[in-house]
């Protein structure tokens, strides 16, 4: 087995510890930024839906400001966003490199994206359900929690899956500006014509994406009645 691998991916087999380190770093970036992005994105998405005109906590000002801020960060290409955020990262986290340094840029990349996914999932909830809940004496918070969020679980799971997959892409790009991880590994060695390194990284990421997508589909399916 080892011989076979040596023959097809010699440049990977010559540094297995570095590959393993890269995998661990990518997993760390995902495991830290995904839950935080999920929470912040959910809060922002719910805020947009609740505050938009006709929403249960209608507030034109909040809805406008939050919407524009989301649009602003979504319109900056991630590689630029990551560079712009280096300063903020240094200020808040204390470093702009490594896994720690990648967290702030990753959050700014994924939170606005996921917020829009949440908003779009929640907008699918029929206004009739909201009206029915209001007629039963539900408060705006009840309606957000027991109707909007409860009924949009499948949509939010699907949006979360898409976001997680794009987050993997972001970690690879963050690697290019010194965050480490699989992206960094592939760029460092792949650019030196060790193409087997690049292909190996692609296959590992493909496996991660497939697992996430399959799990997401399954959960969404289970939540749909």
């Amino acid at each position: 087995m080892a011989e076979f691998l040596n023959s097809i991916i010699p440049n990977v087999m010559s540094k297995p510890d570095l590959l393993w380190k890269a995998v661990v770093e990518t997993m760390q970036m995902l495991l830290i930024s995904a839950p935080i992005s999920f929470l912040l994105g959910l809060v922002l998405g719910v805020t947009v839906v609740a505050c938009k005109p006709g929403g249960v906590l209608q507030n034109r000002f909040v809805s406008l400001v939050v919407g524009k801020v989301i649009d602003l960060f979504r319109s900056i290409p991630f590689i630029l966003l990551a560079i712009i955020m280096l300063g903020l990262s240094r200020l808040v986290i204390g470093t702009a490199s490594g896994v720690k340094g990648a967290i702030i840029p990753l959050l700014f990349g994924t939170v606005p994206f996921f917020a829009r996914q949440v908003e779009s999932a929640m907008s699918e909830v029929s206004p009739g359900l909201v009206e029915a809940a209001a007629s039963m004496g539900c408060s705006p918070w009840d309606i957000l929690w027991r109707v909007y969020l409860k009924e949009s679980v499948p949509g939010i799971v699907r949006g979360g899956t898409i976001t997680l997959v794009s987050l993997i892409g972001f970690t690879a790009m963050a690697g290019a500006i010194g965050a480490g991880g699989l992206g960094n590994f592939a760029i460092t060695y792949g650019l030196r014509r060790q193409m087997d390194v690049a292909y190996t990284v692609i296959i590992i990421i493909l496996i991660m994406v497939s697992i996430i997508q399959a799990a997401g589909n399954r959960i969404a399916e289970k939540a749909t009645h």
Binding site: S126, M136, E151
Partner: peptide, 22 residues
């Protein structure tokens, strides 16, 4: 807040039923 309490005494049914699908 007071109105929400009163609404519990006034139920409503709809043309499109509006049951919670989940």
């Amino acid at each position: 807040r007071e109105l929400r309490q009163e609404r519990k005494k006034i139920s409503m049914i709809f043309q499109q039923f509006n049951l919670m699908p989940s």
